[in-house]
Design a protein around this nucleic acid. Structure first.
Lengths: 246, 246
DNA sequence: CGTGCCAGGTGCCAT
DNA sequence: ATGGCACTTGGCACG
């Protein structure tokens, strides 16, 4: 029999009583994956009700609870890490209650009938990711002329009461430049972010202007920039899509 | 033997060859849940690499691919619904390749060794949710005096080139009021959104002012409102946390 | 903890 | 398809 996989602690179809036992034994010690017929109530920042249906329920080792249906990237219901899970059993129904303390939120999963339960030790390797905005800022900070010819770097990640400026430059004429960088097409929100920073420095009495740097920009955002004396510089990062997948 | 659950089509630990068979047979016809040792590459809007580790892989009926580790609400890697999955097997390694057409993105999952595979028919019931911004807008549109005493409703969901205005009112003096509603604490972005709409109408020559309605507001956002002649009205929706969970 | 912002954000809707 | 935006957004970094 080749039916063995080290990380799988337990796997099978169980009655409600055994489900409670398994959750008691393994919650926060391993990841519990269940396929169950259940109805769900959520109450917190919003509230929701889901009728009885067969769903995939995941109780992660960090206390995360996820409930998935057959469609969609996002879970139907969830509770974040460090939620507290309590169980209650009553005549062939198991009630799993996941509570988040702040903000106070409660997710109640009522499981009826048998469940397929897999208890497994999953990894926590994480991943390395490339092509984040930070990487582009790094590139541009090392080559300010890519933004404005002859400009020099003054600072990066400058805090203001209204958010953090990505890059501050001094242009060849000595004027300060506030730069907002986007990794993808710039939308209206990016322009207003920039506008906010520029406005802040002007109110401090500084003579600054603003530049939005992005690989692309929407028409209305371009118009917004023009209407507010802001500039757009097109820039596509060198290393986009850097990794070859064999 | 009570070991039966109608929705579970297949469940067990399988060798690579059988994994490929199961995916061939059931992908897009049922949800496939796998526990596998795998390494992952992603390339698209960004790119990422994940070293070999034991992970939970979900292939949903709509083509969604999710890869989870033992921590976190969000998947480590994913591909949205309607992605195309191809399989390749080569000496005890299975390569699952999920491709999204637009934007072009590729997720490659290299599975080594045996996998625990569950094939299951999940539901697609969805849920009803309460306490969304839309519900609050509804409440306020029916009671404009909650925002400004004696005001009357002019319109809801008014489209502008810079976004959709939640509510337009006429105050007792006959002046137009642009209202932006938030379901939670208002942050700086909400204030700027409102500012954008007000600015737009003023450029059209209309005499308008702006009101931000929210249950709470951050200090800097309140300051931003004051600096730009905008107003804040505190409003907590009546039906918040409406559902009792037994 | 508040506040802001990035994210491979996702999903929804309107032009 | 473009664009703006809500979302139980989640997650992080910084004051």
């Amino acid at each position: 029999m080749g039916c063995y996989l080290k990380e799988v602690i337990s796997s099978g179809i169980v009655e409600p009583a055994e489900l409670v036992e398994l959750v008691n034994k393994w919650f926060r010690r391993a990841t519990i994956v269940m396929v169950s017929k259940c109805s769900i109530s959520y109450s917190g920042r919003a509230s929701s009700i889901a009728r009885e249906s067969t769903r995939l329920i995941i109780l992660k080792q960090d206390g995360t609870v996820l409930v998935h249906e057959s469609v969609g990237s996002n879970p139907l219901n969830w509770q974040p890490r460090s939620s507290i899970v309590t169980k209650k059993i009553s005549e062939s129904e198991v009630e799993l209650r996941a509570i988040r303390v702040s903000p106070r939120e409660e997710l109640v999963i009522r499981v009826t009938g048998r469940s397929l339960v897999v208890v497994v030790e999953l990894g926590d390797e994480g991943l390395t990711i490339y092509g984040k905005e930070e990487d582009i800022i790094e590139e541009l900070a090392n080559n300010p002329s890519r933004i404005i010819s002859g400009a020099t770097l003054i600072a990066r990640e400058v805090s203001t009461p209204y958010g953090r400026v990505d890059i501050m430059l001094k242009d060849p004429s000595g004027k300060l430049v506030v730069v907002e960088v986007k990794r993808a097409r710039a939308e209206i929100e990016a322009a207003q972010q920039l506008h906010r920073y520029v406005e802040y420095y002007r109110r401090l009495g500084l003579d600054v202007y603003g530049v939005l740097v992005a690989p692309d920009i929407s028409n209305s955002t371009l118009k917004y920039l023009g209407d507010h004396g802001l500039k757009y510089v097109k820039y596509s990062p060198k290393g986009s899509g850097a990794i070859s997948l064999l």
